Amino acid sequence: MIQSNKKGDWFEIILPAEWEKFTLESLFKDFWQAPKKLVHTYRMEKKVRINGKSPDWTLPLVKGERLQLNLFVEEEMTVVPDYHNVEIIFEDDHLIVFNKPAGMDTHPNEPEQKGTLTNAAAFHMQANGEPGRPRHVHRLDRDTTGAVLFAKNALISAILDKMLDDRHIKRTYLALADGIIRQNKGTIDKPIGRDRHHPTRRRVSETGQKAITHFKVLDRFKQKDLTLLQCSLDTGRTHQIRVHFSHLGHPLAGDSLYEGSTEFNRQALHAVKLELVHPFTQEKIICHAPFIDQPPIFFNINPYDI
């Protein structure tokens, strides 16, 4: 793990030997893959220093020198801070991972909306005296529970967005599907588009966006006619797991939007695990999300074993 610390408005990284192959320019462009516009802003506003001085962005980095980034700056909140008692699975100066409960949107759909996870994240940061604002890196459906990742500043947000696009952030789900799925594991590679006949539904469509879901069967409950699944995604389409298993004739239990059984009052879907390598410290972060208000069958599984 790379040595680092927060000093007031600045974040300081002790440059490791493995970064000597980069210049400051290539560290931002090639390693962190930060957007050109954002990097230009950091250069023009002198938000980057080495050993306290304005750096030459074209020189190779040197092990042991101090790279300083002006990350912790005041930002105007774009949502209304709103207190909610939501479990935090992981947090540092840059990231926060919540365990989202059911019945909560990830972010507001209108400027003054309250009650979402982003509102709760804004309140949490404000209460802790943090100057930035939260940015969700990905989303979960309103009634899907589990791990959701937020960034606390513009640079880490941009880096994480790119990591998500490049599938360097791994998300694992548990799902309970109607019926007995005989195949022990498999991949569903079916594009997903909007359903012309319903305002919120999605469907498998040849003209839709590419969507890939990997799954393996964890257990089969023949008496209840249910299959417990572990799923991971190569893409992040709206309702992806729900649409794919509905298309196979095995909608998720409780998922009324996709004609799932009515044994539960919402879709049985939980984002149980989130994994990434921290862009600044290179720490391997593994977050397990304990179950919240889940179907009893889920409690046969220890989320820390996934």
Rank of each mutant, 00 (worst) to 15 (best):
D189I: 04
T187S: 13
F221V: 12
A211M: 11
P191I: 06
S205K: 00
P191K: 01
H197Y: 05
I181P: 03
V204K: 08
T213Y: 14
R203Y: 00
V217H: 07
I181L: 09
A211E: 10
T200G: 07
D195W: 00
Q183F: 03
Q183N: 00
R182N: 00
K216L: 14
D219W: 00
I181V: 02
I192A: 06
Q209W: 11
I181C: 06
I192H: 12
R182K: 03
S205R: 01
I212T: 02
D195I: 04
P191C: 05
T200R: 10
D195M: 05
I192Q: 11
V204P: 13
H214V: 04
H214I: 12
E206C: 01
A211F: 12
V217F: 02
H198R: 08
V204F: 02
R194G: 08
P199Q: 12
F215Y: 15
P199N: 10
T187G: 06
G208Y: 13
I188C: 09
V217K: 05
R202M: 15
L218K: 06
F221K: 10
R196P: 15
T187R: 10
R201H: 07
I192F: 13
I212R: 01
E206Q: 08
R196G: 00
H214L: 12
S205N: 08
P191E: 02
I188N: 09
R202W: 09
K216P: 09
G186W: 00
D189W: 05
K185W: 05
G193Y: 02
H214S: 14
R220Q: 14
L218R: 03
H198S: 05
F221H: 08
T200D: 00
K185I: 08
K190T: 11
D219M: 04
N184Y: 06
R196T: 01
V204D: 07
T207N: 15
R194Q: 13
T213D: 14
